[in-house]
Design a protein around this nucleic acid. Structure first.
Lengths: 199, 199, 199, 199
DNA sequence: GATGAATGAGTTTTCATTCAT
DNA sequence: GATGAATGAAAACTCATTCAT
């Protein structure tokens, strides 16, 4: 069945509070109490009422960030031309996201590393992330066969791109005065040079 | 019975236990209870007896990992020739470290992001990390002036290298069957292509 | 089952328990565990739930005792005539309070000396006590100028009266069979003789 | 058997440390750890080695303070003439003690109220205090019969004197700039007026 | 559906005391 | 005798979750 409007509004409110707390104090110090305070709720019981548990809330946070990210990134990627262009668009859009939703990526970077594989309820997420990276790897390998990219280990490349983006995200949080657009361009240039087929 | 450890031996034992727990369950779920169990201690009080607090222990963990890392990496870097060679040595040594101390880097990657700037006792560490990255950035900029490296934003490059290494570390932990040496070579190749001066 | 108390009723219940424990075992041996047991609560966590911390509870205890004391004493003091009469009323009312609330003053005498000046949250209380004694001192000095009291150091007199009352309170606790009314009258007589203007 | 010199020196050192800590932080926050630090010892175990327990140490503290107090007070009291003179000497000597041993009385005032009657090992002390006060009360009653003192309840008078002295001690600790000698004289005057036989 | 008081297991930390060396 | 590492109980407090209303 669908959720009532007020219920879904409450859930959204809580998820937003969670994102802000995660970005501010980190996963380890994020508690229902702090989230409730941030979201203006009078008790932590409300969070338990609306979510099946802490994991459920964290999954919702991850889903929200991914939803927002994809809404921003997908059109920009699809608009680009060629594998080379799409790689550049992917990197640039990811970094530019920082300026639009400063806390979302930071929150995601707190949540994901702290959800270990033992909890099967996260399998879907980790799978989908795996899948995302696997797909990127596959596309890269196809682009290599087509001669659009040079020879390299696609697993390493995909991992490096992901890590480089995340590092820029985290470091930008400590130095938010930096202008995002040039960082995005530089990072895209970097991996363009690393992937481009030899002349 | 019970062997009587010297003060420093006991501290080492606890730090090792902490590294293993951190690598296994992540910072958020790391507790004195789990560390005590891992280290074979009968009570959490003992950890408090040997360390001034959780932060003190975490700082010792960071120090230990850095000590071990530098002991491994520095000779390999200094043995290399030229800025290009040193960059490759830095990356390769960092990744190879995985095979030698599989849990050390993972533990460090759990500890560092969860120590926010508000605690002044960590300033030294964050400063030293900052300093390390600042120095790398400066060296890169010098190498650019000497014409050994091409033009690029050194801040972005240093950040990307660090993030890429960390991402490989974390992902290798989920797929430990992968052979480390080729990953190291590939990652070094990647950033070599991204930094090398244009022909 | 278990009756659901309202927030303030629960707080009152805990404060009463704290007063009884303080009077019985003294500040140093007063713990949340003992208070919870005395108040019929199942866990110490409940106390933490209703009070921000041990200090908060102790402050509430002090406030409760002062509230009760003033409700008893003020009308009796104001009803008295002249400075001489008011001093007598102050001393007698203070001692008589023992019979009405046997544990309240004892609890206060445990709490106050164990709250050192370093904690700023207590400043209000210590200030107000200071203020009370300063005001008493000022009134005495005015009464001296008016010729109602003889010459003496008002600081010493106020301190002595306070200390004498407290000593009677504590000693009465060890010998509760003593009749309070005569003690009150005697103590008032004592300080009446010590303050009365020379004939 | 007798104690060796070094052993008794150690005990003295610990007792002195305990007196200082008690005067500084109060009974509730006094711990073996703080005493060991204050006394320059490397472990709390040493204190347990030299004393049968916390109570034993506290009893030793009380004994030390009483020893010192009597050594100061007794000659001054015996040197005085008549019951009236002895009362004055008792009060003045007690207050003057503040200037000579500023922390001793404060430490005693921390220890005594926190040793409840339940522990039989303190009976001797409480008895001796009782005895002291009982004796004072008896002497006063005798002086009343002799016509040297007026009519009053000696129990109340003895209690009031004790409490007044203690209050001056505590309040002087918060305002140590006050000159002790005038305080002593004023307090003695006060109780002289309260006890003197009517003209 | 919604609330917030209650719960009890969990956290880190401090305590006085013991015991092998 | 003397030491200091080890102990384990107890401390205050936080946590996610439950449940009566």
């Amino acid at each position: 069945m669908g959720r009532t409007f007020t219920e879904s509004a409450r859930r959204t409110q809580i998820v937003q509070g969670a994102i802000e707390v995660l970005a501010e104090v980190g996963y380890a110090k994020t508690s229902f109490a702090k989230i409730a305070k941030q979201a203006g709720l009078s008790s932590t019981g409300m969070i338990s009422y609306h979510f099946a548990g802490k994991d459920d809330l964290m999954r919702e946070v991850a889903a929200e960030v991914m939803r927002v990210s994809q809404a921003y990134m997908l059109p920009r990627i699809e608009q680009a031309e060629g594998n080379r262009g799409r790689l550049r668009a992917y990197i640039e859009a990811n970094i530019e996201l920082l300026a639009v939703y400063p806390k979302h990526l930071a929150a995601l970077l707190e949540v994901l590393p702290n959800t270990r594989g033992d909890d099967p309820s996260w399998d879907g997420y980790h799978d989908s992330l795996h899948t995302v990276m696997d797909i990127q790897q596959q596309r890269m390998e196809e682009a290599q066969k087509l001669g659009e990219f040079r020879e390299f280990d696609a697993w390493v490349m995909v991992t490096a791109i992901r890590g480089a983006i995340d590092a820029v995200v985290m470091r930008w949080h400590a130095e938010p005065h930096l202008d995002v657009a040039p960082l995005a361009r530089e990072l895209a240039d970097l991996f363009d040079r690393a992937t481009i087929r030899e002349p």
